[in-house]
Amino acid sequence: MTSARDWRGLLFVAPFLLLYSVILIFPLLRGVWLSFNQVDLFGDGHFVGLGNYARLLNDPIFGTSLINTFEVTLMIVPALTIIALGLAMALNRGSRNAAIFRGIFFSSAVLSVTIVTLIWRFVLAPDAGLLGELWKAFGWQPLPFLSDENLVLPALAITTIWWSVGFPMLLFLAGLQQIPGDMYEAAALDNASRWTTFSRITLPSLRRTVVLVVMLQTAAQLQLFGQSQLLTAGGPSGASRTAVLFLFETAFGRWELGYASAAAELLFLIILAVTITQYWATGRATAAQGGR
């Protein structure tokens, strides 16, 4: 009877499992398999073992794209976390104005990346852009954000922060609203300054949210693609080419599907390693604090 029940149960989840296998498991495994082959647009290709991986490690363009990716992630994640927390704290009140501003700051998150890059091209363009005009008003030479190798990654970072700040802000708002009000009243009676209240009450109460935001954003920004493709197409001279843009160009520009798959698998392993390291580090920090 038990086995009959088991089968019946399986029947209920079968449609989902089937779909899941076809559109997720299979492509995943297929991708891994592709990365061990040399494949182009036509034909099945042939097995090259770890050949693609060996080639990647010696490919300076891939190396640069990885470094660009890490740089832009390091620019984005800390700044984004701090700005989102600051906005959440400023807007964590019941007033009507706060509700309106919460809506405004979240609204950028619903825009598509095409719109976002379009907007920021208008802002960043040196000849007629908003920032260029501002610089000129001060009598300075406008900065060529999108064509200077040293400015293009910060420009990407600013664009991304503007686009992505809404969701972390909401997470922080939710976290802030979990903190009971009488805790702040107790702190007031304990003569705590604003800074002490923030650092000893608010921040420790938001620890889990901070960890969540940092981990989600790190994983997301290591896959940064649309902004760099649409804003600069990776230029100038590869200074803003990210890892995902590299594998997009390899796969759908040069049609080296096996090579691109190997790059994708490598990026996947890197993101996994970074996330696990973060998780492990926060676990140790908690243990050092005495645990909970």
């Binding site: 009971p180 805790m183 007031a188 009676l189 003569n191 000893r200």
Partner: peptide, 16 residues
């Protein structure tokens, strides 16, 4: 509140 020389025990304790 912190400078009044009073201490309060809250209904829900409000421990940190």
């Amino acid at each position: 509140p912190g400078e009044r020389g009073v201490a309060m025990v809250f209904q829900h304790y409000a421990l940190y």
